[in-house]
Design a protein around this nucleic acid. Structure first.
Lengths: 132, 132
DNA sequence: AGATTGTATTCGAATATGCGAATACGACAA
DNA sequence: TTGTCGTATTCGCATATTCGAATACAATCT
């Protein structure tokens, strides 16, 4: 039921959806690190890491504190990040339902919706577009 | 600490990282729906929905049961999907830390790592590559 | 001053993603 | 049998993402 803004939610998830960025975020769950620290833990070049870090900054998933000549990156939204990582780590096994089960579920939903206002039946979108 | 396979985790998250796909998944948290049901709840054309559904199938986030001429789609990994949606819905507010705080945190981590084996100091990657 | 370090940015090419239009196709209805 | 419905697939283009190479730049070190 929780209505979400799919546009911005998708943008947020896109920031997570890259192996290197996930690895960076995972590293940072262990505490703040500067780019060089990351560089020798991860299989990526410095320029590339900086690029990903820039993206993560723009999404406000990380931020940095300048410590003399190095920048120490840290998680700007640690709970969100930790939860996300945990959820994908768990990796629930896919289930498959029989047609029967689905029919039953749908029926139950229809019943519940019986108390709701009725939408008027309208012409299919396909024929509607075809009429132009 | 939870070591994850960043490659496949990223692939999974990529499937979530699109507004239309998020909307589809959200719809399905309310119970199974056939493509037509989705079509009149979402601002997307049928062909496009089918494309996204195909992708979601390949990632095993959804599956369908054939009910006569219609295909009823349902969530194949409901917990994962619900959790993901919940997490992005919550949308934690980004925090910012002072350089002092970061230094303190780093110091604490260094202390903890003091008991660990020492890595030999090696030439920077840049000069190493430059020597070729 | 010149070299080195830590880091960011810019550019260009390769690859991937997203979308509409067109089409396919099997049920079913007229 | 012709149309229509529900759905999927294919194609072509437009746009976005990713990466390495090159370069920038300020702060040290030599």
């Amino acid at each position: 039921m929780t209505e979400i803004d799919t546009k911005s939610a998708a943008a947020l998830l896109r920031a997570f959806a890259h192996p290197t960025r996930l690895a960076i975020l995972q590293e940072l769950t262990g505490g703040p690190k500067c780019v060089t620290d990351l560089e020798d833990h991860l299989p990526a070049r410095q320029a590339n890491l900086s690029q990903h870090l820039a993206l993560l900054r723009h999404t406000q998933l990380v931020d940095f504190a300048q410590d003399a000549q190095t920048r120490c990156y840290y998680l700007a939204r640690p709970k969100l990040t930790a939860l996300l990582l945990e959820v994908v780590a768990r990796n629930e096994v896919p289930l498959s339902k029989s047609t029967e089960q689905i029919k039953a579920e749908k029926a139950k939903l229809e019943a519940k919706r019986a108390a709701m206002p009725k939408k008027p039946k309208q012409a299919s979108k396909r024929t509607a577009r075809a009429r132009e």
